[in-house]
Amino acid sequence: MSIHRRNNIRVTGNASGRTVVLVHGFGCDQNMWRLVEPALAEENRVVLFDYVGAGGSDLSAWREERYSSLDGYARDVVEVCEELDLRDAVVVGHSVSAMTGVLARAMAPDRIGALVMVCPSPCYIDEEGYRGGFTAEDIDELLESLESNYLGWSAAMAPVIMGNPDRPRLGEELTNSFCATDPDIARVFARTTFLSDSRKDLGNVTVPTLVLDCEQDVIAPPEVGRYVHAAIPGSELVTLPATGHCPQLSAPEATAAAIRSFVSALGR
């Protein structure tokens, strides 16, 4: 099984430009980037992929042990970079994948030369002196609701999961399919994401880093963006005039412009 097929890698854009790897977060797949991809592709070579377990990846390659820690997701990023033999790529990670990018860079320093962290959160749970946006009880409730109510959670996806190739009509009716995730895989990803604490890894980042956050973000409050910016020496913070946790969808032009300006300042 090639990594290409396993991670559903897609490469577009300007082949002579600097390579930008777009990494989706929890909940969706590479489609998250579809509104910013055209703008980025003008100057840069753009690499898109799905984590194993998401989107068009090979679900049979998914292993709970591997994907129960962020390192497992970071290894996906590294293996995609290796597959394409990338050097000094810019890894753009959304949400939890902003941290995955940090871990991947530590694993493969030659391959990753800069990071863009879109709505990052190194830790979701509030602590003394740190505001992550959620209490431990909130996260417990989330995980509990995942455990006890997966039918409800997966209502948008269940038809795809239950659908079989013999009944393609089921899939056709369901336009929500590209963000469909197997409930078991989603549960593991959610647990890994929302219980993660990678704050100590931020200080190790030595490459140029852009932190992008939104004015209003239900998942990562403004304090988190500021925290990440302060913890990474020399990083740049851009707060987008956007709401929600997905500025690449709610404010694609501003998001793409911020990434382009950061990447072009890096040089080739």
């Binding site: 977060g25 929890f26 909940g27 969706c28 489609n31 998250m32 579809r34 509104l35 949400s95 959620f134 909130d138 996260i139 409730e141 989330l142 509990e144 609701s145 995942l146 109510n149 039918l151 409800g152 959670w153 209502a155 948008a156 336009t175 929500n176 963000c179 959610a190 929302f194 239900v218 998942i219 929600g244 946790h245 997905c246 969808l249 709610s250």
Partner: peptide
């Protein structure tokens, strides 16, 4: 929304709605 619902909304519902322009049959509390 509940906390679980908020996260679902942010990670699934809102992105899908923005991409598709339409979303149906979502179960939330």
């Amino acid at each position: 929304l509940t906390v679980g619902g908020k996260l679902y909304h942010e990670t699934h519902f809102a992105p899908l709605l923005r991409i598709q322009g339409h979303l149906g049959g979502i179960a939330l509390e």
